[in-house]
Simulated scan of single mutants.
Amino acid sequence: MIDQALRCFVAQLPAGAAPLADLLFFWNKTAVHREGGMMGKERTMPKPGTEPARRKHRVFPWIFLAVQIGFLIWVIAGAQANDCNGDQACEAGTTIGVGLIIALWVAADIILGLTYMVFRLFKR
């Protein structure tokens, strides 16, 4: 219904008003119409002369990736740093140490995941 009214209005515009027609069609596409009413978060056109909003940089995925690489390097270094020469007690200690590093890694991932979810929840 709104599209039909918009098309009738645009058809009556003079030939030099093409930018206005484009603006009206853009507004109609970005406004959110659901079940006969506007939703609470509607998009509006940027004011003339202002720069469009910049996309926010996503820092968390890079931090998460850096933590994963750090733990992976730590596990590999911990597994390779034994001078056991076949001593079973030494090898058991290395295994326990690597296991503790992996447990710390899992705990850090859980904490980072919960922190990310909390920040996303409060961001809305």
Rank of each mutant, 00 (worst) to 15 (best):
R34I: 12
V59A: 06
D87K: 07
T30F: 10
P61M: 10
G78E: 04
W62M: 08
P19Q: 12
L100G: 04
A81L: 07
G36K: 06
R43G: 03
M45H: 06
I63C: 10
R58V: 00
P46L: 12
P46G: 09
T44A: 12
T44W: 06
Q68P: 00
P61T: 07
F25S: 09
P61I: 03
I69M: 11
I63K: 05
G70N: 02
K29H: 14
I63H: 05
I73W: 07
E35H: 07
F71Q: 04
A89P: 00
P46C: 08
Q80Y: 02
L65T: 06
F71N: 02
L72G: 11
W27C: 14
P19K: 13
C84E: 01
V32T: 14
W27M: 15
C90Q: 06
P52F: 07
F60I: 08
G40M: 08
F60T: 07
R55S: 07
A18M: 09
D83Q: 13
A89V: 09
P48R: 11
H33P: 01
L20Q: 13
A53V: 00
T44R: 12
R43P: 03
F60D: 05
G78D: 09
A66R: 04
G49T: 04
P19H: 10
A79S: 05
K41Y: 02
I76N: 03
L65G: 08
G78Q: 02
G49K: 08
L23Q: 14
K56D: 05
V59H: 06
G97V: 00
D87S: 11
E51N: 11
K41H: 09
A18W: 02
A77H: 06
W27R: 15
T30G: 03
F71A: 02
I76K: 02
Q68N: 10
